[in-house]
Nucleic acid binder design. Structure first.
Lengths: 194, 194
DNA sequence: TTATAAAATTGACCGTAGTCAATATTTATT
DNA sequence: AATAAATATTGACTACGGTCAATTTTATAA
């Protein structure tokens, strides 16, 4: 009878997203408050939850979009041909993911999505990462005894490991990427590792 | 002037831990409520937070103790000599960690501790796991071109990856351990993998 | 135009973690 | 035993995410 989604609703959702993105740009992801978003968007609290299942769902959308920007940039220069290039290509993304502990926690929490049929925005970026890295591995100077997809999944596992350890003790940025490289040397070129 | 910790305090803390452990045994980790714990322990809410920094700190203690029990059992039969043995030795621990999504989230959140000087209970179990697995790897039928500690860290990374993917889509228990084994075949015996 | 039903919004309300100034208890000192 | 000081406990209060019955707005049909 009625067309499913009214223009008003689309506008409200866009406004919520815009206000939230601005707040995050100003104060960081972890400081975002739903009450602040609805106040600045000029809507009631319930409206927020009519548009997003919960606060995490909004964070997923925003962080997922940010990850995709980093993946675009990582793909831009063409394929990474060796471990050093792979590490430097992933560096901006990993720096973003570890900018705040809160960001990393949200990402990990949503990296394994709920249901395959409806992969969340962050889980989608994880799949995209696998595809990209697998593509590099297939065409580059890497071991060929196992599938590139398995290798790409390993790269992701090591990235997560390096990032998790980054939050431990007094680690500077450099150590995270060095650790990541150590893993990848042993994972992607076992014959050369030593 | 006064001895630092009164007996009363030790008893209260022990009672809170006992009550919380019982509640978890009855209803699972994710269902634990601080208000329920203090009610059943017969203390005020503020007392809880005088003993534990937050609810997560209590969960860390309890889950850390549970992980240590699984590690004890994993060590019991002596060293794991190959990938199959390693996978089956880790199986009960990984099953526990994936019993509830909430448990896995708490573990990941605390696997990389805040400060090295004061490793939390869960971070300690992660260090212990590295030691145990590194010991197996050093003495067993595994590649020798990189250090056993690096290899053990990789085992941990792959375990986390397999568990994270377990929460994705329709995966049964079996697939998680199969996936884990695939990773380890390629990681610990690259010459044999194919 | 009016009646009507779907869609969207509202805001008071709830659940639960966490805080803190006030109070009570314990122990050392005289 | 009285005093003092450190330690422990209390519970009303706050912060904040999330819910839902009631209301308003929008679009379609008669």
């Amino acid at each position: 009878m009625l067309k499913q989604t009214q223009k008003r609703s689309i506008e409200t959702r866009a406004k919520l997203l815009r206000v939230a993105t601005e707040a995050i740009a100003a104060n960081g992801h972890g400081a975002l408050r739903v009450e602040e978003v609805v106040k600045n968007a000029g809507v009631a609290k319930g409206t927020f939850f009519a548009h997003f299942k919960d606060k995490d769902a909004l964070m997923e959308l925003i962080i997922g979009a940010q990850i995709n920007e980093y993946l675009d940039a990582a793909e831009e220069p063409g394929r990474a041909k060796n471990v050093d290039e792979l590490v430097s290509r992933m560096r901006p993304l990993m720096d973003f993911m570890t900018r705040e502990r809160y960001i990393f926690d949200v990402i990990v929490r949503h990296s394994g999505a709920a249901v395959k049929e409806e992969l969340g925005p962050i889980a989608q970026t994880f799949e995209r990462t696998i595809e990209i890295v697998a593509g590099w591995i297939a065409a580059g100077d890497f071991r060929k005894d196992v599938s590139e997809v398995l290798l790409a999944e390993g790269v992701q596992a090591f990235a997560v490991q390096a990032m998790a350890l980054h939050f431990c003790a007094i680690n500077n940025q450099e150590e995270m990427h060095l650790r990541f490289k150590s893993y990848l040397d042993a994972w992607l070129n076992p014959s050369l590792a030593s």
